[in-house]
Amino acid sequence: MAEPGKIDPMYQFEVQPIAHLFDIAGLPVMLTNSAVWMLVTGLALWLFMLGGMKQQLVPGRWQVAVESLTGFISSMLTQNIGPEGRKYTPYVFSLFMFILFANLLGLLPLGLIGISPFTITSHLAFTGILALVSFSIVLVVGFWRHGLHFFSLFVPHGTPLPMIPVIAPIEFVSFMVRPFSLGLRLFVAMTAGHVLLKVLAGFVINASNAGVGYGLTVGLASFVLMVGISALEILVAGIQAYVFALLTSLYINDAENLH
């Protein structure tokens, strides 16, 4: 894909196998750069949480940071689901923090020291599976709590009887689309942001190579734009993690309380 001297903005998304570990059902499981960044993300998250485990009555700055994040997620769950939403806090918190840290770590300018960061959330295989896990929780909780009554989710309250044959399929389709929209949203947002950054970086390099005049006009303008978009991407990293956790909690609310 990446020929020498050419800048390919999609090359950053390529998963590079590092070592062949073992086979599952005849398929080789590789240690990849994606796997390494997942492990780094998990480690960073663990270190972050460790700083908040002092359990002091009067918390330090780090403990306040950890406690405000846990309080943020648990209040989101109690607001959207109710008191019984607290039992989903471990899952939604893990989801939110994992996505948040993965998004932010993927944005680190590690290229400066020769390491190319990999944004694990820019892969549909990754976000899609997380979305499927959330969707499975919704299905399991819904059928566990309400049995076949869970299907009344497709008939909103107050629907006139003649409208049910029209409304129910629409509701069903919108329900089934949820895991795709949930996974696609995060994947597309991260991919688009990183492609944009790489394209602008390519502009800076190519314009600078083309001469001082191009470098100072096109290159500098692109560089300034990159700085702004980097700030925007940090915002998007937080917002996408929040949206994923929020939508998961809203879907779980449907399963817990129906409509």
Partner: peptide, 14 residues
């Protein structure tokens, strides 16, 4: 190897 590796590591880490 792609899908199985991604799923394996995601399941492990998550």
């Amino acid at each position: 190897w792609y899908l199985v590796s991604q799923i394996f590591w995601l399941a492990l880490v998550f």
